[in-house]
Amino acid sequence: MKNKFEILKNVKLFEMVEENLEAMLQCLGSEEKKYAKGEIVILTGNPVSSVGILLSGGLQIIQEDFMGNRSILTELKPEHIFGETFACAGVTESPVTVIATADSTVLFIGVQRIINTCPSSCLFHNQLIENLLKIIARKNMLLSGKNQLLSQRTIRDKVLSYLSLQAEKKGNPQFEIPFTRNELADFLCVDRSALSRVLSILKTEGVIAYNKKQFKLL
């Protein structure tokens, strides 16, 4: 298993930062927290003032409407960053909940410690700010792709668009998705039973093959 600093070297926020990571984290006032599976990391309605970096485990970002209908916005893996958009925007009430899907460790850094130079005038701050802007811009592009996926008219079109994107991302027609059936239904904002019917039809038609989370485009 990778240690914390091996993971952080691959985190986009620290890209091109030529600095001792341990000293930099101390300057930034970082805080490490552990969460058990099913525990809430960020709760809807709470303020967000820190950037979170997942060091181990897994997280889901979910959103619920007034009626309690749940939608999974994204799945987070180690090295992924979350909360930066809300923290930078000064959001006083988070519109989403972040929940641990496995025992997880998260490193938090106050966004003000990133974007404001410290009394020591550490040289890495400018690079961190540039990296943070790039991360936010990339996530806006991904959000645009998610909106395009959800704009598909039928469940069949949503499923095929999602699976095609996964195959393209992996560079292979055979791949594993990060979701269970219930989670995939929440991610695509469709009914669980209707999703199962569509998957079964696509399998019968010879369009796809699947076993649990393993899929193959035929």
Rank of each mutant, 00 (worst) to 15 (best):
A194I: 07
F86S: 10
K34I: 04
L76H: 14
T180L: 11
E183I: 12
L165T: 10
S49Q: 08
G58D: 12
E183D: 15
L142H: 12
N140G: 14
E22A: 04
V111R: 05
L59M: 10
E205H: 12
L123P: 01
S94N: 13
F14N: 09
I62S: 10
T44N: 15
P95F: 07
R70P: 00
A209G: 06
I129P: 00
N46P: 01
N131D: 04
E18V: 05
L54Q: 05
L165M: 15
V198Q: 15
G90D: 13
E79W: 04
L165D: 10
L217Y: 01
D65G: 06
G52K: 11
E64F: 10
R156A: 08
K146T: 05
E84R: 13
P173R: 02
K2N: 03
A87V: 07
A137C: 06
Q152M: 06
T97G: 00
L13R: 08
I208Q: 11
N140T: 02
T74N: 14
G68Y: 11
I99V: 15
S56N: 09
E168F: 09
L21K: 09
R153H: 15
S196A: 15
C189R: 05
S50T: 05
L184P: 04
D157N: 09
S120Y: 11
K170F: 11
S94I: 03
C122Q: 10
T92N: 15
E79Y: 06
K212S: 11
S104R: 12
I177T: 15
Q152H: 00
L13P: 04
S50V: 01
L54A: 05
I135P: 02
E176C: 05
T117Q: 06
A194H: 04
N211Q: 08
I62C: 06
G29E: 01
E15Y: 12
N172L: 08
S121F: 06
T85F: 08
I62N: 08
I7E: 02
N3V: 03
N20A: 00
Q26K: 03
V207F: 02
E183V: 10
N46L: 12
G68E: 05
K212N: 10
I61C: 14
Q26D: 11
R113W: 02
I115W: 06
A102C: 03
K169N: 13
E18R: 05
A194V: 07
L160A: 08
N69E: 04
A137M: 11
H80M: 13
C189M: 00
Q214N: 01
Q152G: 00
F175W: 04
I177Q: 05
A89Q: 14
D186H: 12
D157A: 15
K170V: 03
Q60C: 11
M24S: 08
Q148L: 14
K34T: 11
M24R: 03
Q112R: 12
D191G: 12
K213T: 14
